[in-house]
Design a binder for these strands. Structure first.
Length: 612
RNA sequence: GCGCCCUUAGCUCAGUUGGAUAGAGCAACGACCUUCUAAGUCGUGGGUCGGGGGUUCGAAUCCCUCAGGGCGCGCCA
C-alpha cells in the first residue's frame, strides 16, 4: 500500500535504474533493495542498485552509483542522494515527506501497516491441537500464542486466514482417557465396597491409568449423575463375550471376567472428550485464543476421510507393501523386519518411506494426519501452516512430503516449531508431571501473571529458541520487562492526550507539523514510518516475535522523547504558549499510540490506558 | 550411528532473508527528579559472531568441515 514508504522508494529507485540501464534483466531489477542503513549516519535509506546492476551495465559500481544518485536527486521526496562505499547510494528524505506519515496514521488508525502482500492467498494456520486428555498446561501455551499472533500477522499483511485446531480425539491417548474417566466414574458410584483404587483398577482391567489428575473427578461425577450405575462394570462368571462387542483398547478387561460393554465405554470416552474440549476452549478463551475451526480426527475417520486420502495416494502409485530398513547405525534391540503399508515419502524429499497402518490394521497417526491436511486443501486453502512443538521436528519432512503428494505440489506446508518453555519461579525451575497431575496449568499461569504478560512474553523470543519464563520477571515493572516497557509507553501517550483534553483525531490529522524538528521527534517519526515494512517482513518470515521487538524500539524512541521534555521544557508535548507546536506534538503522540495499538493488536495484547 | 535445529559482549537476546565501523537490555561505573507518571532517560567500558576452509564487489547471514548443546530416529500422538 502507498503507506509503505519503503515500497514506494523501491519502485522509484527501480524506475530510475531501469531508465539508466535499459538492458537490465528483470531478475537483476528484482534484487534491487531500498532499506534503512544499519548506520543512521548514512541517511534514511540506502540502495544496493548500483552494485546489482554494475555487471549487466558493464560499469564500475561507484560510477553507476553516481549516475543513479543524480537521477534520484530529482525525486520530490528525496532531499539528498549520494554514492557511498563500494557502490551504495544513500538517500536522505525530505522531512515533510516523512512527517506526512503522521496524519496518514491518524487517518487510517490501527489499520496502519495493513498490507496486500498476501492478497488472494487462503492460508490455514493450525495451532495448539493438544490432545483432549486434560487441561491446557504451560507447555501448550507458547504454540497457542505464536500460532495466534502469526495468524493475526498474516491477516494484517493481507492473507485470508483460517485459525484451526485439530482435535486428536481418536487413538490410544483418548482410549487411555476413557479408562481414566471410567475409573473416576466407578469411584463416583462406589459399588459394593469394592476396591477402586487406581492400583486395583489397573489390575482388574489389565490397563495402565495414564491420567490420574484430579481434573477427571468432575467427569466421573458428571457420568454418575447422568447415567447412575448403568455403565458400571460387572463381574461375570464363565460368560463368553461376543467378539464384535470388543474394542481393542478395552479388550483386556473382558478377558478378566469383567463385562464392560463397549458402547458404554464409548459413552464414557465421548463424555470425557467433550468435557475436556470444553475446558480447553475455556482456557484458550482466557488466553484470547478463539479458533475458527475445530476439526475432529474421529469425525474424519468415521467419514472415511482417511481411506479417501490413502486411496488418493494409492491411485497415484504412492502406496506399497514393503519392509523398511532398520535405522542407520544403531539398530533397536527388538528390531525385526515387518511388511507394512508404506507411503513413498522419499519421492517427495523425505529420508524414508513412512508407514500408514499399524499391525492391527488400524491407521497410524500419520495416515489420519494426511486426511486432516487433505481436508484443509479440499476446503480451498492454498497455504498450510502448522505450529508444532520442537519434539515433533522429526515429523516435518514426512508431512510436507504427504501434502506435496496430495496437492500435486500446489499447496505448500510450512511448519513453525516452538521450543520448550522453562517456567521459573524465584530462580528455580517449576517441575511438571502430567501423570501425577502436578503441572502448571495455563489457567494458573494466566491467573498469576495476566493474559497480556503471558502473550507478550511468549513473543519475546524467536519461536525456535528455548525460553525461560520467569513468573517474577514478567510482572516486574522495570525497563528489562518488555511487556511493561511497551505498555508504559502507551499509557504515557494516553496520559498526555488526556491532559490535553483528548483532542479529536480528525483535528490532529490536520495539524501543520513543521514544528517537529527535534532529533528525538524525527527519530520517532521514522520508526512509525517503518511499521508497514516491519509487518510485511515479519509476515514473510512467519516471525511474529519481530512485532514485539519493533514495539520495544518504538516505545524506546517515545520514552527518549518524553525525557527530552524533562531536560528541556521547550520540548514538552503541551505548551500553552505554543499552540501550533502543541498540536503537532499531540498528533505525533496520538500516532505513536495508534501504532502501538496496531502492534499489540497483532500480538493479541490489550493496550492499557494507565499504569497501576 | 543418521537427520534436523542451535552456538553473537560477563548474562539474556536482536540482527530488517548477502550490505558499509555487528546492536539492545541486564550486570559494572558515572550523570539527570519543584515536571505531561524518575515504573523513565543519558553517558562510559565490554566482541576472533564456537574453530577452520570456501562461494563474491561484500558473509554473523549461503556451502563444506570440525567441536559443543538440544530434538528426533518402523505400529505414541
Amino acid at each position: 500500500m502507498t503507506e509503505n514508504i519503503f515500497t514506494l522508494l523501491t519502485q522509484e529507485v527501480r524506475g530510475a535504474l531501469a531508465a539508466l540501464v535499459p538492458e537490465l534483466p528483470a531478475e537483476a531489477l528484482a534484487r534491487v533493495q531500498v532499506e534503512p542503513p544499519r548506520d543512521a549516519a548514512h541517511g534514511d535509506m540506502a540502495t544496493n542498485a548500483a552494485l546489482v546492476a554494475a555487471k549487466p551495465a558493464r560499469m564500475p559500481p561507484p560510477k553507476l552509483a553516481a549516475a543513479l544518485a543524480g537521477r534520484l536527486m530529482a525525486l520530490p521526496m528525496v532531499s539528498e542522494a549520494a554514492p557511498a562505499g563500494p557502490g551504495f547510494v544513500n538517500l536522505r528524505l525530505r522531512e515533510d515527506f516523512l512527517r506526512a506519515q503522521v496524519p496518514t496514521v491518524l487517518r487510517v488508525g490501527e489499520r496502519y501497516g495493513d498490507s496486500r502482500l498476501g492478497a488472494g492467498v487462503r492460508a490455514n494456520v493450525e495451532y495448539v491441537s493438544a490432545n483432549p486428555t486434560g487441561p491446557m498446561h504451560v507447555g501448550h501455551c507458547r504454540g497457542a500464542v505464536v500460532g495466534d499472533a502469526l495468524a493475526n500477522l498474516l491477516a494484517k499483511a493481507g492473507w485470508d486466514v483460517t485459525k484451526e485446531y485439530y482435535v486428536n480425539d481418536a487413538g490410544n491417548q483418548v482410549a487411555a482417557l476413557g479408562w481414566a474417566a471410567y475409573w473416576r466414574y466407578m469411584r463416583a458410584i462406589t459399588l459394593n465396597g469394592e476396591d477402586w483404587t487406581a492400583e486395583a483398577t489397573e489390575r482388574r482391567f489389565g490397563v495402565t491409568l495414564q491420567y490420574r489428575g484430579d481434573y477427571l473427578v468432575a467427569v466421573g461425577d458428571a457420568l454418575a449423575e447422568r447415567f447412575g450405575d448403568s455403565l458400571a462394570a460387572r463381574r461375570i462368571e464363565g460368560t463368553k463375550v461376543p467378539a464384535e462387542e470388543t474394542l481393542s483398547a478395552f479388550a483386556p478387561a473382558l478377558e478378566r471376567g469383567w463385562l464392560v460393554k463397549t458402547a458404554w465405554l464409548d459413552t464414557v470416552r465421548e463424555t470425557a472428550v467433550a468435557m475436556m474440549m470444553a475446558e480447553i476452549r475455556e482456557d484458550l478463551a482466557l488466553l484470547g485464543v478463539n479458533q475458527d475451526v475445530f476439526l475432529s480426527e474421529r469425525s474424519l475417520v468415521e467419514a472415511g476421510a482417511v481411506e479417501g486420502a490413502v486411496k488418493l495416494l494409492e491411485d497415484r502409485g504412492l502406496i506399497y507393501e514393503g519392509v523398511l530398513e532398520p535405522p542407520k547405525g544403531k539398530t533397536p534391540e527388538d528390531w525385526e523386519p515387518r511388511p507394512q503399508t508404506l507411503f513413498r515419502a522419499t519421492d517427495f524429499g523425505d529420508d524414508v518411506d513412512r508407514p500408514l497402518r499399524k499391525s492391527d490394521g488400524s491407521n497410524t497417526y500419520f495416515a489420519n494426519d494426511i486426511a486432516c491436511h487433505a481436508d484443509k486443501i479440499a476446503r480451498g486453502h492454498d497455504l498450510l501452516i502448522d505450529v508444532w512443538g520442537a519434539d515433533h521436528g522429526g515429523y516435518v519432512s514426512r508431512m510436507q512430503a504427504a501434502v506435496r503428494a496430495v496437492s500435486d505440489g500446489k499447496v505448500p506446508l510450512e511448519v513453525v516449531l516452538c521450543q520448550i518453555v522453562h517456567v521459573m519461579k524465584a530462580g528455580e525451575p517449576v517441575r511438571m508431571s502430567k501423570r501425577a497431575g502436578t503441572y502448571v496449568t495455563l489457567r494458573d499461569l494466566i491467573e498469576e501473571v495476566g493474559r497480556d504478560a503471558v502473550r507478550f512474553t511468549m513473543l519475546t523470543r524467536k519461536s525456535d529458541a528455548q525460553m525461560e519464563f520467569d513468573l517474577d520477571k514478567v510482572v516486574e515493572q522495570s525497563r528489562d520487562n518488555p511487556v511493561f516497557y511497551v505498555q508504559y509507553a502507551h499509557a504515557r501517550c494516553r496520559s498526555v492526550l488526556r491532559q490535553a483534553g483528548d483532542p479529536a483525531v480528525a483535528d490532529l490529522a490536520g495539524a501543520p507539523l513543521d514544528a517537529l524538528t527535534d532529533p528525538a521527534e524525527t527519530a520517532l517519526i521514522r520508526r512509525i514510518a517503518a511499521w508497514p515494512r516491519t509487518v510485511e517482513a515479519a509476515a514473510t518470515a512467519r516471525e511474529p516475535h519481530r512485532i514485539a521487538f519493533y514495539l520495544g524500539d518504538l516505545a524506546g524512541d517515545f520514552h527518549v522523547l518524553w525525557n527530552r521534555g524533562r531536560d528541556d521544557s521547550t520540548l514538552r508535548f503541551i505548551r500553552a504558549e505554543e499552540p501550533e507546536a502543541t498540536r503537532a506534538r499531540l498528533a505525533l503522540v496520538a500516532a505513536t499510540a495508534t501504532v502501538i495499538r496496531s502492534g499489540l493488536g497483532v500480538m493479541g495484547v490489550t493496550p492499557v490506558e494507565e499504569m497501576r
